Deep mutational scan, measured.
Amino acid sequence: LETFPLDVLVNTAAEDLPRGVDPSRKENYLSDEDFKAVFGMTRSAFANLPLWKQQNLKKEKGLF
């Protein structure tokens, strides 16, 4: 999966995202380093959170 810089994904409308980016899964296009910096946890820890908590975190970080 291709990764993009944080500033390309945060608070970006679906139509302005790079081609192929799923707007409902912007976090998947962050590098592992950016993911950890944004969410303060690994991808696996994030995946283990309840869906509502994942969505709330994504909203807080501008990735929803």
Rank of each mutant, 00 (worst) to 15 (best):
50 P>N: 04
32 D>I: 09
50 P>K: 04
51 L>T: 12
64 F>D: 15
24 S>H: 13
10 V>F: 06
60 E>A: 12
64 F>N: 14
28 N>P: 02
31 S>E: 04
54 Q>K: 08
29 Y>S: 07
62 G>W: 04
42 T>L: 12
59 K>V: 12
34 D>L: 05
26 K>C: 05
58 K>P: 00
62 G>C: 05
42 T>N: 12
37 A>W: 12
1 L>C: 11
54 Q>R: 13
49 L>Y: 06
14 A>G: 09
11 N>R: 05
4 F>P: 01
2 E>N: 12
12 T>S: 11
61 K>Q: 12
46 F>P: 00
55 Q>M: 12
21 V>A: 03
32 D>R: 05
49 L>R: 01
63 L>A: 02
14 A>Q: 11
40 G>L: 12
2 E>S: 11
31 S>L: 04
22 D>V: 03
32 D>N: 12
38 V>M: 06
15 E>S: 09
51 L>A: 11
19 R>Q: 15
11 N>T: 07
15 E>N: 10
40 G>S: 12
63 L>V: 03
52 W>A: 10
20 G>Q: 09
21 V>H: 03
45 A>H: 12
36 K>P: 04
37 A>Y: 11
40 G>T: 06
32 D>F: 07
21 V>T: 04
30 L>R: 01
55 Q>N: 15
23 P>A: 10
19 R>D: 15
20 G>V: 08
58 K>T: 02
33 E>A: 10
8 V>L: 14
57 L>K: 05
27 E>P: 03
2 E>P: 15
1 L>R: 15
23 P>H: 07
44 S>E: 14
10 V>P: 01
42 T>P: 11
54 Q>L: 01
24 S>N: 14
61 K>N: 14
41 M>G: 00
44 S>L: 12
15 E>T: 06
16 D>Y: 06
17 L>V: 07
46 F>Q: 00
40 G>I: 05
59 K>M: 14
49 L>C: 05
36 K>N: 14
9 L>V: 02
45 A>G: 09
53 K>Y: 12
32 D>M: 07
15 E>G: 08
19 R>F: 15
60 E>C: 08
45 A>L: 12
43 R>Q: 08
18 P>E: 04
52 W>F: 11
58 K>Y: 03
56 N>E: 15
62 G>S: 05
25 R>M: 10
25 R>N: 08
32 D>L: 13
17 L>K: 01
50 P>V: 04
25 R>Y: 10
60 E>D: 12
31 S>Q: 04
8 V>K: 09
4 F>D: 02
11 N>K: 08
6 L>M: 08
4 F>H: 06
3 T>Y: 15
18 P>L: 03
38 V>K: 01
17 L>G: 04
16 D>N: 08
64 F>C: 14
61 K>F: 10
42 T>C: 07
33 E>M: 10
63 L>C: 04
41 M>E: 01
45 A>D: 15
8 V>A: 09
40 G>D: 14
11 N>Y: 07
37 A>K: 13
40 G>Y: 08
10 V>I: 12
44 S>W: 11
11 N>C: 11
63 L>S: 01
11 N>L: 07
38 V>T: 12
12 T>W: 09
59 K>N: 07
8 V>W: 11
26 K>T: 08
42 T>G: 12
12 T>H: 07
15 E>A: 09
63 L>K: 01
61 K>H: 14
32 D>Q: 09
3 T>C: 08
54 Q>H: 00
15 E>V: 09
3 T>E: 06
18 P>V: 01
7 D>S: 15
10 V>N: 04
58 K>F: 01
26 K>H: 02
56 N>P: 00
42 T>Y: 06
52 W>N: 11
28 N>S: 08
15 E>L: 06
27 E>M: 01
64 F>P: 04
44 S>P: 11
2 E>C: 09
9 L>E: 02
33 E>I: 10
3 T>M: 07
62 G>M: 05
55 Q>W: 08
31 S>K: 07
16 D>T: 04
19 R>V: 15
6 L>F: 11
57 L>W: 06
39 F>W: 01
17 L>S: 04
17 L>P: 06
6 L>W: 07
36 K>T: 14
46 F>V: 00
51 L>I: 13
4 F>E: 02
31 S>M: 04
18 P>Y: 03
39 F>I: 05
59 K>G: 07
18 P>C: 06
41 M>T: 06
8 V>H: 07
64 F>G: 15
40 G>H: 14
36 K>E: 14
63 L>N: 02
54 Q>W: 00
21 V>K: 03
49 L>G: 00
47 A>W: 09
52 W>Y: 12
18 P>D: 06
42 T>S: 12
60 E>T: 08
13 A>G: 08
18 P>K: 01
9 L>R: 01
60 E>P: 02
53 K>F: 14
17 L>R: 01
35 F>N: 00
43 R>I: 06
27 E>W: 02
32 D>S: 08
17 L>I: 07
36 K>W: 15
51 L>W: 11
64 F>Q: 14
22 D>W: 01
8 V>E: 05
31 S>C: 07
24 S>T: 15
40 G>C: 13
1 L>T: 14
13 A>F: 07
5 P>Q: 05
47 A>C: 08
16 D>H: 09
57 L>T: 04
9 L>W: 01
30 L>V: 04
10 V>A: 09
49 L>E: 07
20 G>E: 13
62 G>K: 06
10 V>K: 10
51 L>D: 11
30 L>M: 06
52 W>M: 10
23 P>Q: 07
51 L>H: 12
4 F>V: 06
24 S>W: 10
20 G>L: 04
52 W>Q: 10
64 F>H: 15
28 N>D: 15
11 N>W: 11
62 G>E: 04
25 R>C: 11
1 L>W: 14
33 E>N: 11
21 V>Y: 05
34 D>F: 02
44 S>Y: 13
51 L>K: 11
29 Y>F: 07
45 A>F: 10
56 N>W: 10
33 E>K: 11
62 G>Y: 05
1 L>A: 12
57 L>V: 07
20 G>R: 05
60 E>W: 07
22 D>H: 04
60 E>V: 09
12 T>V: 11
12 T>A: 10
9 L>Y: 01
18 P>Q: 01
48 N>M: 13
64 F>L: 13
58 K>I: 04
2 E>W: 12
23 P>K: 06
13 A>R: 14
24 S>E: 15
8 V>N: 04
8 V>M: 15
42 T>A: 11
20 G>K: 05
38 V>P: 00
50 P>I: 02
30 L>E: 00
16 D>W: 05
34 D>W: 03
24 S>F: 14
48 N>L: 13
35 F>P: 00
14 A>P: 14
53 K>T: 14
5 P>I: 04
62 G>D: 07
36 K>F: 14
36 K>G: 13
37 A>M: 13
1 L>M: 13
36 K>V: 14
12 T>N: 06
53 K>E: 15
41 M>Q: 05
44 S>F: 12
56 N>H: 12
